[in-house]
Amino acid sequence: MGGPPGQEAGLSVGAVAQRLGVAAATLRTWDRRYGIGPSRRSTGTHRRYTSADITRLEVMQRLILAGAPPGEAARAALDAPPGEPLKPRGHGAGGNRVPVGAAAQGPEGAEIRGLARAAMALDAPVMIDAVRTALGRDGVVQAWNELVVPVLDGIGRKHAATGDCVDVEHLLSTVLLGCLAEVPSPPQPRNTRPILLACAPEEQHSLPVYALKAALAEANVAATLLGARVPVRALAAAIRRTGPNAVFVWSQITETGDPSWLSGLPASRPPHHLVVGGPGWADDRLPASATRVGSLAEAVAGLTSVYERF
């Protein structure tokens, strides 16, 4: 590469980004914010990453995946002697880790770690590629259960423990919503009457409902998604307007899980089937007319069979 004998030629930012699986913009941000960047220059003004630089970046990535904030991970990677095992500062082993559970072993575990790493680095392009790949290869239900849920669960636990990662969760949710929206609606659905999907009043956690809509589309079932925080009157009006086969209502948190209003939803002809999902519901007070589902797969199975009943 034109350098003195024995001197490392070094790699460009694009080559290092490809090697580490992050965006080049992320590497430039790490260099600018945390001073963990290329240490030598090639001919002209271009800077090159040496093998030592790349090792530091790999250490930083591992620490971010383990739950350290990027700034802390960069400082640890820059300060530690070469070859010394590193842990996030100020935390016991595993105490600030983004847990992914038993599924973090093997090829599936590598995908979970990759998505978690990209999320912690706020690397949207890598997140989009990972989610799209999983959805296209495995379908919505499997990708949701085996990739998305473990990563979201890990980020949620870290937030509960430290108060951090709100930005990480929001960006990942945005990426997931975009990827799920790319699942095409069925051109000739199996159901002639719609299925309504809604969140309970004041329930803002709508991502699982978007996953359900995409999974139903894969099963060739059309659904109308009303979104988050659907007032009772609005859901009642939608039932009257559409005469749905089924109505699905999601509650994520106990504050939105009071089911007393469900029995007051208007009837339709033929009668619709009421299905509820999410951990927020007070199960002991659900109306007898409601069917409780406990997973995305169970919701899909129940709702895809509804159209055959009427």
Rank of each mutant, 00 (worst) to 15 (best):
A234Q: 10
G243N: 11
A15I: 07
L115F: 05
S185P: 05
T162H: 00
R56I: 07
D123F: 03
Y210R: 05
A74R: 07
S12V: 08
H46S: 06
H91P: 04
I54A: 04
A103G: 15
P287V: 08
W30E: 07
R97P: 03
P5E: 12
A211C: 03
L57C: 06
D167I: 07
T174R: 10
T162K: 00
G44Y: 01
A24R: 11
A198T: 01
G37I: 01
P69W: 07
I155R: 01
V247C: 01
A198I: 00
L176M: 11
L57R: 02
G114P: 03
S268V: 09
T133M: 07
G94S: 08
E169Q: 14
D31K: 00
I239F: 10
A223E: 02
D283N: 09
A238E: 10
G10E: 06
T224D: 14
A246R: 00
G277I: 03
A76H: 06
A198R: 02
W144R: 03
F310H: 15
A219I: 00
G95V: 10
D164R: 10
P287C: 08
V247K: 00
S268I: 11
A214T: 01
T29A: 15
P81V: 10
G109R: 01
L274A: 08
G139S: 03
Q61K: 13
I239A: 12
A9R: 13
E203K: 03
P85W: 06
R240S: 14
V232A: 14
R229E: 14
P244M: 06
E298I: 04
G21I: 00
R233T: 14
L122V: 04
S289W: 05
T43C: 05
L197F: 00
G280N: 09
E108I: 13
L27Q: 13
E255P: 06
D138R: 15
R48C: 07
A119L: 04
G14Q: 11
I128S: 15
P85E: 08
L225C: 10
S42R: 11
A219C: 09
P88I: 04
S295W: 12
A134E: 02
E202K: 10
K213I: 04
A160H: 13
R240M: 08
G163F: 02
R241I: 09
V221W: 01
T133L: 11
L265Y: 05
G44R: 04
S263E: 10
V22F: 09
D138Y: 14
G154D: 03
V100I: 05
A76N: 03
R32S: 13
Y210W: 11
W144S: 09
V221E: 02
H46F: 06
A130Y: 06
P4K: 10
P107I: 12
A200R: 00
R240P: 01
G294K: 11
